[in-house]
Design a protein around this nucleic acid. Structure first.
Lengths: 226, 226
DNA sequence: CCGTACGGAATTGTTCAACAATTCCGCAAT
DNA sequence: ATTGCGGAATTGTTGAACAATTCCGTACGG
């Protein structure tokens, strides 16, 4: 009885969180969905009214997103949606290669449930492809890479990966929704899942590395056209 | 002429920054130096007066440090200095092993100046040891690991490492300043620098991995005693 | 004697209104 | 065409206020 009450309170605290966190989540989502394009300015007063919070509270939310590299603060000029360039793409992929391959190699941490999560993301992508629902495929792809990193079982690594994936969404919107971008990587995901389940972490890592490099090239090329 | 003016402005903007950033920097430093022990509460009103900023501004600073895991926010109860536990130690070292060994293996990125920075940190530690200045040795050790990560040439990885090193400082203060903690690793640092300069990134990585694991064990043991 | 309900004190979460500092933009003057 | 100069708009920052929540001592009932 007492426990349930305490739990209830804790749940509300974590679910509701603060106004600043909620505002941050809304903005994060708007950017992720591409409703706020790269480079759009976010005037504090207008935005605060739109979100129904005070300017101070909004500023806390904006600071969060700046820390996440989703927004960029230009001193005395305001906050704008980040417009990543080729260097950003290169760096994000550098880090992804390092982290994701590292997680693959650390086979000691690959518990059955973590491997199952990877497999689940693979089939999720296959199902989406069968329906030609490319948004679902893109989403499944993110789940796949999130699950690969989660193989390491590290909260800090998971958090870092979350930031990287948020930046990735910026990339995609910047180069215009490339519907079939993830199409060719479905088979790769499956193959990597196979290798991981077979305990061949090193092989999975090398395969993932070249896969990521190829995706990076594709993105860089798309950026060069813009 | 015009360039210098623009540079001047940019320099002042980055040096002075905002009040919130300055407050955050002061607090970060206080925690890093151990003047604010783990678990100490940070009441907003008092702290704001002490730092000479308004409460709203202080809250922005606190949010930054919470995002950096240096402070922890307990809803409606305030912000306290984080008190890491054994799991945190394990996770930080998991991530460090992954990132630092990854940076070692990526020999293609090891430019001469980056390798020189690693070497410089090694001799800095040796100089400190010769003087039996253990604070200097600890500092040099941080520089060494920072330089190792910087081998990868990734701003995002550098930022991540900065967070991890800040957490490490918390660990050390929590287990009481272990003067000679870094002593045995001086030789290891030198050996790893040698391997890196010889282009043997894989060997450097494995050596660094066991080095980090041993340091982790030592820290976990120290934590268990507390 | 122990647990517990209660009420005030302290702190946080949030808002509002203001003001200085800075940037942006159009317009006049050369 | 460039420069210089307001004026408008926006940001950075402050101070005060108030509701919501937690904390803590105290009195009450079993």
């Amino acid at each position: 009885m007492l426990d349930t009450l305490a739990d209830e309170r804790r749940r509300r605290r974590t679910v509701m969180s603060t106004s600043a966190d909620r505002a941050a989540r809304v903005l994060r989502e708007q950017v992720a969905e591409g409703r706020l394009a790269c480079g759009t300015r976010l005037p504090e007063e207008r935005l605060a009214r739109a979100l129904g919070v005070s300017r101070n509270t909004l500023r806390e939310a904006l600071s969060q997103l700046v820390a996440e590299r989703i927004l960029v603060r230009e001193p005395h000029r305001g906050v704008v949606v980040a417009t990543p360039d080729v260097d950003d793409v290169a760096d994000v992929y550098r880090v992804r290669r390092l982290i994701e391959t590292g997680a693959c190699r650390d086979v000691a941490a690959h518990t059955p449930d973590r491997l199952a999560a990877v497999r689940a993301a693979v089939v999720e992508g296959q199902v989406g492809a069968a329906r030609e629902d490319w948004a679902a495929v893109a989403s499944a792809n993110q789940h796949f890479h999130r699950a690969v990193v989660a193989l390491a079982g590290s909260p800090r690594l998971d958090a870092q990966m979350e930031l990287l994936l948020a930046e990735m969404r910026l990339f995609f919107h910047r180069m215009g929704s490339a519907d079939t971008f993830h199409r060719p990587y479905l088979a790769e995901n499956a193959a990597i899942a196979d290798l991981l389940e077979a305990g061949r972490g090193d092989d999975a890592a090398t395969r993932l590395a070249s896969y990521l490099s190829s995706a990076e090239r594709q993105l860089v090329e798309a950026f060069a056209r813009v």
